[in-house]
Nucleic acid binder design. Structure first.
Lengths: 262, 262
DNA sequence: TCAAGGAATTATGTATACATTTTTTGCTGC
DNA sequence: GCAGCAAAAAATGTATACATAATTCCTTGA
């Protein structure tokens, strides 16, 4: 009854640890085999990724290929492909002949991910300042800034408006990643963001003052980029992302955002 | 006779571009089916990666699954697995139903990779300074520094000694990545390094003065880490890696390293 | 001659059978 | 009861056959 597993990545190192039992109650509806939607492998990848990110699986749980293939109603082939993709995204661990398991993310790893993002996004901001924005990119960012101003004008945000501001925030950052003209950078930022939702996405500060301050950061960052002030764009973005990390750490340690004049 | 392909990544965007014909003369000896060596998929992955990195395939060349499986003497299954791995490493492009092709790296992308590495490795140095080194790590770095001192004592380096110094250099950086205690960071640095060898690995400055200077950087970085001077460790490492980029750019633009007193 | 369309070919995507390894089970002996 | 071992079970790895999509090639028409 005592099973074993190895914590392992692609260049594998063997450290024996016990498997966490997979509550395979994690039910996923079957995959409609309708055509036109790219490949089954990609659909299955998205499905399993969403499932893992939303915390349907226990960290350390083994991803049995046959069970998943039964649940999703496809053969093992697309399942294996999907699991491999998710492992290379860092969401799963893989050990040769032992299969895939849900990666266990320590809180410190989630915090570190923000630290890495701060470095990467600050570089993206610098590149954007150095390389300039297209008209389209300027338009998108300006619209995002205006929309944000509008949303944050009121004193409090409802659920719907928070979602709307999330979209605004995404558009701002995403456009800068695009403007950096560097595929590798974009890929890596994406890696930083694909970290299990369990603890932080819900936790991250929605304190109204914090949101307003971060939106003001956006304005300054955009100004710096427009003026080709690469140094300032970099520093502002680094601080901007790092502040999210600080908010996260504070939330995790159970302390509320301290009140202060703004 | 006019074939087409799509430049594409995993979240795919379709931009039609012509295939480059694959000179499938790129001969790879077959795969010995001996057991014990992990899985065939992993062996094949290493084989194809090495082949691509060493420039055996034309950029843009299509990676035909059947031809590769014939060349390597395995079925399509491990080939597909390997190609998927290499695509997620960024070495290949993938388009659904169109297959894999060798990614075309612009010079600017290779230069940018150094810029990214500078950010990531500087963060690693900071983490190492903040989090401290184990006795083993200190020992490895100190040995690397001594060995480097010894090798660089003479006025010129032979082929063998350059390889030896390469190992020393690797040990230094690798140990710092380990000391950063951040798997995601290590993974990303590895991504930065897996960029085709074609132009730069051979080109990167082996000017003796440059090597000596970079080795001196190592000493200073180690000092900063030992003293837990996170800020200085970060800045020194950032400049250290950035200087390699500068050397690369200079080499690519055909200018020699300017002489100057040291 | 060239463009357009459609079969034929070829390639990739998926399912499945088999091989190999791992894990479990259960027996033996102490 | 438990350590140790062997057989059984189950999981992953690989090969192969078939399904489906993309590409090629050939025919047809202007």
């Amino acid at each position: 009854m005592l099973a074993h597993s190895v914590e392992c990545r692609v260049p594998f190192v063997r450290i024996i640890t016990p498997w966490t039992r997979m509550d395979d109650i994690a039910l996923d509806p079957i995959e409609p085999p309708r055509s036109g939607t790219a490949t089954r492998s990609l659909s299955v990848t998205d499905r399993i990724r969403a499932s893992v990110l939303s915390g349907d699986f226990e960290p350390g749980a083994r991803m049995h290929e046959v069970r998943l293939s039964e649940r999703l109603g496809v053969s093992r082939t697309p399942i294996r492909s999907a699991l491999q993709s998710l492992a290379s995204e860092g969401l799963l661990d893989y050990a040769p002949n032992r299969g895939y398991s849900v990666r266990r993310f320590r809180t410190s790893e989630i915090v570190d991910a923000y630290e890495i993002r701060a470095m990467l996004e600050s570089l993206a901001a610098r590149f954007a300042a150095e390389r300039g924005l297209t008209d389209d990119e300027r338009a998108i960012i300006e619209q995002a800034l205006e929309e944000g101003d509008r949303l944050l004008a009121r004193d409090e945000l409802g659920e719907e408006e928070r979602i709307a501001y999330g979209a605004v925030n995404f558009a701002f950052h995403d456009t800068i990643h695009t403007a950096a003209r560097c595929r590798m950078l974009g890929d890596m930022v994406r890696l930083c963001q694909s970290v299990p939702q369990s603890s932080h996405r819900n936790v991250v500060s929605f304190d109204h003052m914090d949101v307003r301050r971060r939106h003001d950061d956006h304005h300054r960052i955009y100004d710096a980029i427009l003026l080709c002030d690469a140094y300032r764009a970099e520093m502002l973005m680094r601080e901007h992302v790092a502040s999210v990390k600080t908010g996260l750490v504070r939330a995790l340690s159970g302390r509320a955002t301290p009140r202060r004049a703004r």
